[in-house]
């Protein structure tokens, strides 16, 4: 086991940020912590990176206890905070050199590890980090977090504020890194990124809702999800909100998703109900639930 979290809790004044979380992450796994803002992701990351002390419970990262062995632990992890935290007034190259130096290494030594990433920002190596675009900043931050070849890499919302193309590139890079003997623990508020992880844990209001592979989570989901398109999503949401069999309904892109409270039902019944209420162009379709549907459902409970 690369990461072993046992019953961790942490409060800030009245706010219970993390409640009795237990998790295990395997060696070389790409593990995703999925949850909305304020779910407790950053707090959990900081505890695992030995930056915060938990109120109770224990955690073990790469064989080191986060409380007792924090000095050894810090040599063996790479940590990329959610906020861009490199030196904006230093150039790309100076930032990388600095982090290599304070980790007792140099760029050449672990160049093969960061090569794929660094090569993309190398043309801008004389540019100040503050002048980079969001995507390039993330690549630089990742290079800096990797420069000492950590055993475990903590990435706290690495793709927040990054454009869709860079986000995809970023995940491709993570997949490659994983093969280089690095365990990656990543958090994201984007549900579509969950499918790219080996295993995911849903977190909401400081609690873990479910842990499994993305496909198993989808497969084991008991409810049926109906995708509904109409001429007015807003009105349809209001109508379905009052419908007696509605379990849940929420906007999803340009359509809305609906779950029924009955185990067995005919989707055409819902179509008919909407049309009776004066809504036009109604199309209903039974779909495979997406991660977001499952998260919405789990968060309700």
């Amino acid at each position: 086991m690369s990461l072993h979290i046992n019953n961790i809790s942490k409060s800030f004044k009245d706010l219970k940020a993390v409640k009795h979380i237990s998790l295990e992450v395997k060696e070389n796994e790409l593990f995703g912590l999925i949850g909305p803002d304020g779910a407790g992701k950053t707090t959990l990351f900081r505890i695992l990176a030995s930056l915060l002390l938990p109120d109770e419970g224990s955690a073990n990262v790469a064989g080191f206890d986060v409380i007792k062995d924090y000095k050894k632990l810090r040599k063996n992890i790479g940590y990329m905070p959610g906020k861009f935290s490199l030196y904006q007034d230093l150039t790309v190259e100076e930032n990388l050199n600095f982090f290599a130096t304070i980790f007792d290494t140099n760029i050449e030594e672990n160049y093969d590890l960061i090569k794929d990433i660094y090569i993309q920002i190398e043309p801008f190596k004389k540019r100040k980090a503050g002048d980079l675009s969001g995507g390039m900043k993330q690549k630089l931050a990742l290079s800096c977090a990797l420069i000492h070849k950590p055993k475990v890499l903590f990435l706290d919302e690495p793709t927040t504020g990054v454009d869709p193309v860079s986000r995809k590139e970023f995940w491709d890079m993570l997949k490659k890194l994983q093969k280089k003997d690095i365990t990656i623990f990543v958090s994201t508020p984007y549900m579509d990124e969950a499918a790219l992880c080996d295993r995911i844990a849903f977190i909401n209001q400081g609690e873990i809702l479910q842990v499994d592979t993305p496909s198993a989570i989808v497969k084991n989901f008991a409810k049926e999800v109906i995708n509904i398109r109409t001429n007015s999503i807003y009105k349809s949401l209001q109508v379905l909100g009052k419908y007696q069999y509605t379990h849940s309904n929420y906007p999803f892109g340009e359509s809305l998703h609906y779950m029924d409270s009955r185990d067995d039902f005919d989707p055409n019944e819902i179509k008919k109900h909407l049309e009776d209420e004066g809504i036009e162009d109604v199309e209903v379709q039974l779909i495979t639930p997406e991660i977001e549907d499952i998260f919405m459902e789990l968060s309700r409970e």
Partner: peptide, 13 residues
């Protein structure tokens, strides 16, 4: 304030 202290703390410095 900038947050780099967070990274410095996690380093072996």
């Amino acid at each position: 304030e900038v947050g780099s202290m967070e990274i410095l703390l996690v380093s072996p410095l």
